[in-house]
Design a protein around this nucleic acid. Structure first.
Lengths: 258, 258
DNA sequence: ATAATAGTGTCTGTCAGACAATATCGT
DNA sequence: ACGATATTGTCTGACAGACACTATTAT
């Protein structure tokens, strides 16, 4: 190999901020469930940052694409294979890893609730709570998790490396991008009601909308099916699916480029 | 160092797509100048991709921030120091460099015309031409450049590595981002006329607008000065400056998050 | 006066936000 | 009938696109 390659160079790792939606059980059988935004974290068992909570990820092999790498790492931690991914940002701070110079190519990942439940895992889903001061906390509320995790609330200092910052940027990206793209459907099942869709929007954006206005805004992104929900206690809702690019009409001029 | 770090790992380099604006001399002294979008390229003198045209960039040192690295490389190639930069994307294809596995952290750079002229350089400014079929060609029309460069037109195959692709993604990002952010002012002098601003918009987007509508759209981004142009042959135009964030009123709700 | 550019006024259609109203289910 | 959710209709204000119009300069 060339001599110019004989020098000490940075290491490269991947990290993924994987979001999913969890619909909370309603208090009453008459009420509809709430949607919660959740994120996948695992507890580091070794130094550095031992016992801190971290994003799934790992070192990039010389012959590996980062997206394959991160997919493998997510699968190792969660036994989940299906996940939509896009590159988020490359984090480069000199001392973000105390062991060595390590750059991290971070990914934004989204998976739907059904897939997120095929879960048998070293990692844990935490509900993302967006506070008024723009800070985030992460809460576990899953009965199925172990006793020392159930009820746990994490804040910035409980996270390892620069992962709190990575999550913050991922959440911002998610919030921006659902406004001008289709990615939100990666958080939803194949068919869904417009109320479900609205709940996911509102959970992510922390912002309420009226049903009438919301429906108008999303009509050109969805497609009616002939199926209905069969919930108890109230009127059934029509089920919709994501409209494919080809089914959208006319509006290509107005669509964002990236 | 830890044993986990004893493995062959990818190299990391930086590349920058630096855009600037060149106002063309008008045919007649009565006419106003046109704006052209230009990009900085240099000709590789060594293998691989010898004699291909490439983006400024270089290998990242172990203790260096990529943004410092790319700033240094731009300065080496052009002797220009002032440049606005933001991270664009990290390109990771396995064989994007035939010598070794090399990831490239690509940056989008913008500089204004005045700064771009402080130029004494191994690199060359090429005018970006956006063709109807979405392809790009790069033309040199600068009298000051050497004879074997003057009049040269580059197409995809004249560029080295995956740099054509990087430029394409940078241009797309630029086109998107001028619609919802302030970055366009990095391509303009301290004060400018609204017609100048409009020309830059139209050059980048390849799309015409009427002066009346354009003015309405940008009024909340700019600030009047009490100065005027003193062009010959027609009515002078008021000069404007970029409005700072603090001077903008009310609209924060509507602003994009990233 | 004329050519060229600078800048304004007005209409129209679209669309978001607010809010009222109607529809349909299980109990 | 009632409670809950689903769905539609209407008004308003903001704003983009189209286009006609006025203003100011040097020659």
């Amino acid at each position: 190999m060339d001599s110019i390659f004989n020098y000490e160079h940075p290491f490269v790792c991947t990290d993924a901020v994987v979001f999913t939606i969890k619909t909370e059980e309603p208090d009453s059988y008459r009420k509809l469930p709430d949607a919660r935004l959740r994120i996948l974290l695992y507890k580091r068992l070794v130094e550095p940052h031992q016992n801190k909570w971290c994003l799934p990820g790992g070192f990039l092999n010389i012959d590996e694409m980062p997206e394959d790498n991160i997919r493998r790492k997510i699968s190792e931690k969660s036994h989940i294979d299906k996940c939509w991914l896009e590159q988020l940002y490359t984090f480069c701070d000199i001392d973000r890893d105390p062991r060595a110079r390590v750059l991290s190519i971070a990914y934004l990942g989204l998976m739907n609730e059904e897939d997120s439940q095929k879960f048998e895992s070293k990692a844990v889903w935490f509900t993302v709570r967006q506070n008024a001061d723009k800070s985030m906390t992460f809460q576990n509320n899953d009965f199925d998790d172990s006793d020392d995790v159930y009820g746990l609330t994490l804040s910035e200092s409980d996270l390892g490396f620069d992962h709190y910052n990575i999550i913050k940027i991922a959440l911002t990206r998610l919030q921006s991008k659902i406004l001008y793209s289709d990615i939100i459907f990666n958080l939803l099942p194949e068919t869904f009601t417009l109320t479900q869709l609205q709940n996911v929007f509102e959970t992510i954006l922390c912002k309420k909308d009226t049903a009438a206005n919301f429906r108008r805004k999303v009509t050109d992104m969805v497609l009616e099916t002939d199926k209905y929900t069969s919930d108890k206690g109230h009127r059934p809702a029509k089920l919709y699916t994501k409209k494919s690019e080809k089914q959208k009409i006319g509006k290509s001029e107005n669509r964002r480029l990236d």
